[in-house]
Design a binder for these strands. Structure first.
Lengths: 146, 146
DNA sequence: ATATTTTAAGACAAAAGAGTCTGAAAATAC
DNA sequence: GTATTTTCAGACTCTTTTGTCTTAAAATAT
């Protein structure tokens, strides 16, 4: 099982961050993405199509075609991607699964989780996708191997 | 989808907290639990059997039988239950799903998530199950309806 | 125009998660 | 000992998630 995001969503986050490192206007093929990120080809294809349909990416068919960001990098955050793929139920659901849990009728960790939820949200929106991706390219990190 | 724990795990957490409110030695039947917590009967049965096998609960067959805590309430935390049902991969896996993410090769949110992970852990171990359950019984809360 | 390279679309398969059903086994009560 | 009440065990089904495969459609290059 994945930790917090679905597998699809993890792949989406990784792919968009990878695209964010490319020079504006340059298209990247699924082939390159699956190779570099080690994601099943057709599975990733569907995810990228989905993100394209939702406007986060744009696509181009034919030779030298591929995918690129559909908006300005500074206007995209991890939260946008999570929103598009997994939805954002985590912002309002009880972490222990009590259906009746609410501010007036809180579960035992209601407030604690409330704070954590806000911090998770913050983690997803505090930097844009270009900043995020750049962090990962630093020579001492190199999560994206050339 | 559930937020952070699997459905099974949510049910397990809820059931154990419910049992923690019962006087020591008293057995509670699946029937009562499913009724009060609104969990599918046979599904809960399997979960309780699992927790029993792992020593967190004890069981008793026959009339006036049922389930009860298998250890002192003060020695059980939410973490023990999560550990038994979902496992604790969340304590060491990358939240973005990068297989190669580590302290030496961190993803863009590695440190941020590290802090959050610790806080989640803390949420699960800072109080024992009896304290947790009592919070939920407070008259002004009443997540457990009589 | 034709061949090539790419995404688009949808059916399909495999695996995991959630939930159901049935019958056996054990404990109790009578 | 018999009937009843409970857990125990396992097979089964349904749904969701993950992943694969095939064919079509569009764009490009020659």
């Amino acid at each position: 099982m994945s930790i917090f995001f679905s597998r699809q969503c993890e792949y989406a986050l990784q792919a968009v961050m990878y695209l964010a490192l490319k020079p504006e206007g340059e298209m990247t093929s699924i082939k390159e993405l699956t190779k570099k990120l080690n994601i099943p080809y057709h599975f990733l294809a569907k995810i990228l199509q989905d993100l394209t349909y939702k406007g986060l990416l744009k696509s181009q068919k034919g030779p030298s075609g591929g995918f690129a960001l559909g908006m300005q990098p500074k206007d995209i955050t991890l939260f946008h991607i999570v929103e598009a793929i997994d939805g954002v139920d985590f912002t309002n659901k009880c972490v222990l699964g009590f259906p009746e849990c609410s501010g007036k009728n809180p579960c035992a960790v209601h407030d604690k989780w409330g704070g954590l939820r806000d911090q998770i949200y913050d983690m997803l929106v505090s930097k844009n996708i270009a900043q995020m991706a750049k962090e990962m390219k630093k020579p001492e990190y190199r999560t994206f191997v050339d």
